[in-house]
Nucleic acid binder design. Structure first.
Lengths: 136, 136
DNA sequence: AATAAATGTAATAATATTTGTTACATTTAA
DNA sequence: TTAAATGTAACAAATATTATTACATTTATT
């Protein structure tokens, strides 16, 4: 993960949480994050798929939070955007004659999974609510 | 981290640990990992800087482990190649008028650091030795 | 009905990161 | 002297990430 998707998602969710009862436009959200509105709309569609956000099309449309802040953990947000293991990728060395090269990826699979789990454990008990409260 | 550097480093170190008393060439190591020898030499220089590996130039040269396997933790290896936070990067939204946009990066800095620490904690008590022993 | 303002999304472009390759100077044992 | 190794710079190729353009569609308002 060396992209900005986690930062973008939590930013969007924080804005929605702090502006309940309003429909926030992707343009306005994009202005706060200082990124392109199309990126915001793409991420909003991810949030919609998970049922965290509801969006209204057309004039006076926009997005709003569709779930309580305490019901989204930071682990949930992380999982929504995670596209690699914490320890990175493996080399493709399964075909080598070397006994280490032949077996190492099986060992790394396990190590990588266990490390990812450590991150989930660190984030599962932290809620979007507690993150948003920092801005009061 | 969506690169293969951790996998490459631990592969190199595993080979060196299992072939003590020999000078392994970067070409031979590269064959086991199935990557380019120049990449191996670059990573070996990282390992040398940390004093984990000693290299002999010239004919009959190569690399060997210069430290006990139990004295290198997987956290050490991770830190040697880590180039981003577990949760990724931040957007550059410090200049926006929005109160969330203005302050969120300070909050994310802390969250990102704490998450990275959780990974270190998961890896600090695991040694290269215990990883290498899996291949016996 | 017309208009304005919003989302949805495909297609493409621009950047940045990561990995691979070539080339060659240097080192050292035989 | 030669062969075989490292060290490293420079460049190329491949991927991944982010930004942009364009436009169809939707919907409230007038």
């Amino acid at each position: 993960m060396s992209n900005t998707r986690f930062a973008t998602l939590i930013h969007i969710l924080t804005l929605l949480a702090r502006n309940k009862g309003q429909w926030l436009s992707s343009d306005w959200i994009a202005g706060s994050i200082d990124i392109n509105p199309v990126i915001v709309r793409k991420e909003l569609s991810v949030l919609q798929e998970r049922g965290w956000v509801i969006t209204k099309k057309g004039k006076e449309g926009g997005s709003a939070l569709n779930i309580s802040e305490e019901d989204i953990s930071l682990a949930d947000i992380y999982k929504a955007v995670k596209n690699s293991n914490v320890l990175g990728r493996k080399n493709q060395c399964g075909g080598t004659a070397c006994p280490v090269g032949k077996d190492i990826n099986a060992k790394l699979d396990r190590l990588f999974s266990e490390t990812d789990e450590a991150v989930y454990s660190a984030l599962i008990h932290r809620s979007l609510k507690s993150f948003v409260e920092q801005f009061d």
